[in-house]
Nucleic acid binder design. Structure first.
Lengths: 215, 215
DNA sequence: TTTTGTATTGAATAATCATTCAATTTTTAT
DNA sequence: ATAAAAATTGAATGATTATTCAATACAAAA
């Protein structure tokens, strides 16, 4: 059976970014298991079975369950970050179109689906007791907020909007997203991605009254 | 040692609402333990110790750990409900003052503190896997939303506001509250109760432009 | 092919924890 | 005061689970 490193050029050292298939298989399996069974019921045995490796290997590969969970959260965080980072960087696109893309991304089915959300909230629920979880979440939030404020600031200038500061708009948006994600988990029949997205657009419409693209 | 029922009139049957001291002691201890250690690390032994009863008794009294957790969530939910129910019912108070009281309540230190929030989120994180948790949370949300929409509807009439429907305003507020609670957990230095409350007031200011009380 | 090093297995271990229940204490009724 | 009933204890049980590690499979080198 072939269960070794991938991309490993023969006789050459693996680069630092090269990671074994099993590493990623285990992270995927962890996220899937949390989504399917909840964090409380996520055991190394379940994860290993889903990743199709032995239980002993899963532990060996990540040194501990704790470490596997942290790596999975980090992966989730990186994945999300990649999705918005590139939108913020599209400097040639109009700021308002850019923020609309951010909103679309935050409520795309790839990001805002019950499985992903339940995993996020599972980690959130432990944030108070695990400094490493907190650090990952805080870092993520900080960069997102920073970029968001900058973007809102541009829009405020264009729209000549002075009543609401970039920080206020950014924080309000951010909290709405978190809250709506939670509600998607509770009642996906009512809180469809479309519903949530429109609610947020409507919020922006209340701030930028003359801007039709939010309607 | 005196460890029996309270309020029990001699020779009379205990009324249905009469509940033993130990019952409440155990629920309080459960909530405190979840707040201090997290749901994952909340064991019957820890709860019993905190409630100063034996481990065997805790289990006996609630039949199972699961049942104890459900009772604790229900208690938390009832406690919160009591805090807003009476505000919604103050029909002699101006609707805008009433909604401001709702906001003040949602960000009062009794409701929006890290301990309580962490317990809520602990339960939220299991909602997808425990129908009984989901039912309690959904019922709560439903009544709250219903009352909130009615209140917003009154305000819309007074303010002659037609752009934003009561449902939209209510949902936006509700998601903001959930999101901000989450953020209080992450970074209470930045997200003080005052900060959160003002952010929400500012949102209402954006809807009811001519109403100074939200400023 | 043989040797050597690495990857992977799976069964054993030890710790944790919910639950049970016989024994004990406390309360109530007579 | 005594007996009967109810409340409460705490130690034992059995199930679950992370972690370890000796044994095996595999890949690369010679």
């Amino acid at each position: 059976m072939m269960k070794a490193l991938v991309n490993k050029k023969s006789s050459e050292q693996a680069s630092e970014t090269e990671i074994s298939v099993n590493h990623q298989k285990l992270i995927d399996a962890t996220i899937e298991t949390i989504a399917k069974r909840g964090l409380a019921d996520t055991t190394i045995a379940h994860v290993a079975k889903r990743a199709k490796v032995s239980q002993g290997y899963a532990n060996f590969r990540f040194k501990s369950k704790d470490n596997l969970l942290i790596s999975s959260l980090q992966y989730l965080s990186d994945e999300y970050k990649k999705s918005w980072q590139k939108i913020f960087e599209e400097k040639n696109i109009d700021p308002i179109d850019r923020i609309i893309r951010i909103i679309q991304n935050d409520f795309s089915s790839k990001i805002a689906n019950r499985n992903k959300i339940s995993v996020w909230i599972a980690f959130y629920s432990e944030v108070k007791f695990r400094p490493s979880y907190l650090a990952i979440c805080q870092r993520q939030d900080e960069i997102y907020s920073q970029q968001m404020e900058k973007l809102v600031s541009e829009i405020n200038n264009i729209a000549n909007q002075k009543e609401f500061t970039p920080k206020e708009v950014s924080e309000t948006y951010h909290s709405m997203v978190d809250g709506l994600w939670q509600r998607i988990l509770f009642d996906p029949k009512i809180y469809t991605n479309e519903f949530c997205k429109n609610l947020v657009l409507k919020y922006f419409k209340s701030i930028y009254v003359n801007e039709d693209r939010f309607a």
